[in-house]
């Protein structure tokens, strides 16, 4: 955000940027939720915005030597420069409402938040850490799905991550999945839909197949609001649609209830 003024992607109103920032990156006029980076996400969730990043030494490789119009290795480098991230997820630990938690937050700016080996490994490690230290786990998903450039290795991350969050069930540890705009494909078809509760920010696109693929398959226009948070809530796929300004307090309340820790 380099300029003083900006236009809301939704209502097109010109807004003073600081008003958006101090409103959790939500348009004060129309409640449009701007997309957050993983860093911004972590800082609005943890107490006083304080947390410790973990699993920071893991970097992607190019196992298939994948080349489309550009080399995958080149793409990775560009995305690293653009985002200062090594891949599309950050793992962190810290406190929420005084409770120790592990949070993994996906970042759409890094190759569309896609899940390859690194995202799969870090989500798995976050779950394994939660298990080892008996902490609740929160994953904030924001992803176009599996990363094509790592081929079937990406596909297998669906199973790897789903197996990892399954461990928390047996251990009686809470796992809350937060879905933000957009969460589709292989991420929805694995850990993002497997929370003890699944919640979403308003109007987030959430689905398995992308809307364009569906339109091309059925050769019909899709109904308004299709695959949006409110649609998923209506169809029983979510527990709640939560405004960003209430997200932190919602999560703390849920954790307190699950863990029997009244405030």
């Amino acid at each position: 955000m380099d300029y003083l003024w900006t236009r809301c992607n939704n209502c097109r109103r010109i807004l003073y940027k600081q008003d958006i920032v101090s409103n959790n990156f939500v348009c004060p006029a129309c409640n449009f939720h701007f997309r957050l980076t993983a860093i911004e996400r972590l800082s609005i969730l943890f107490d006083e915005g304080k947390y410790t990043l973990i699993d920071q030494d893991i970097s992607p490789e190019d196992p298939l030597q994948f080349v489309d119009n550009k080399k995958y290795s080149k793409r990775l480098e560009e995305n690293r420069k653009k985002t200062s991230l090594k891949d599309a997820v950050l793992n962190a630990r810290g406190k929420m409402g005084g409770l120790d938690v592990v949070i993994a937050a996906l970042d759409f700016n890094f190759m569309g938040g896609s899940m390859g080996s690194v995202v799969g490994e870090k989500i798995t490690r976050a779950a394994e850490l939660a298990l080892k230290e008996r902490l609740p786990l929160i994953i904030v998903s924001c992803s176009g799905g599996a990363r094509m450039q790592e081929g079937v290795l990406s596909l297998m991350q669906l199973m790897k991550t789903s197996s990892a969050v399954a461990l928390l069930d047996e251990a009686g540890l809470p796992y809350i999945s937060v879905l933000v705009d957009p969460t589709t494909g292989g991420v929805t078809a694995s850990f993002a839909m497997l929370g003890d509760i699944n919640i979403a920010e308003p109007n987030a696109l959430i689905g398995f197949a992308g809307p364009r693929v569906i339109e091309q398959t059925i050769k019909e226009k899709l109904p308004k609001g299709f695959q949006r948070s409110e649609f998923l809530l209506q169809h029983g796929m979510l527990d709640s649609v939560v405004d960003r300004k209430n997200l932190r307090s919602y999560l703390i309340r849920a954790l307190r209830l699950f863990l029997n820790r009244p405030a």
Binding site: L158, S162, I214, E220, F226, H235
Partner: peptide, 22 residues
Amino acid sequence: PGIKAEEQGQAGAIAYNLKEIS
């Protein structure tokens, strides 16, 4: 990839199978 499939939770059904298979 269809409308009804999405309405009835295609992604969740796949995810849940993976978790249960594990």
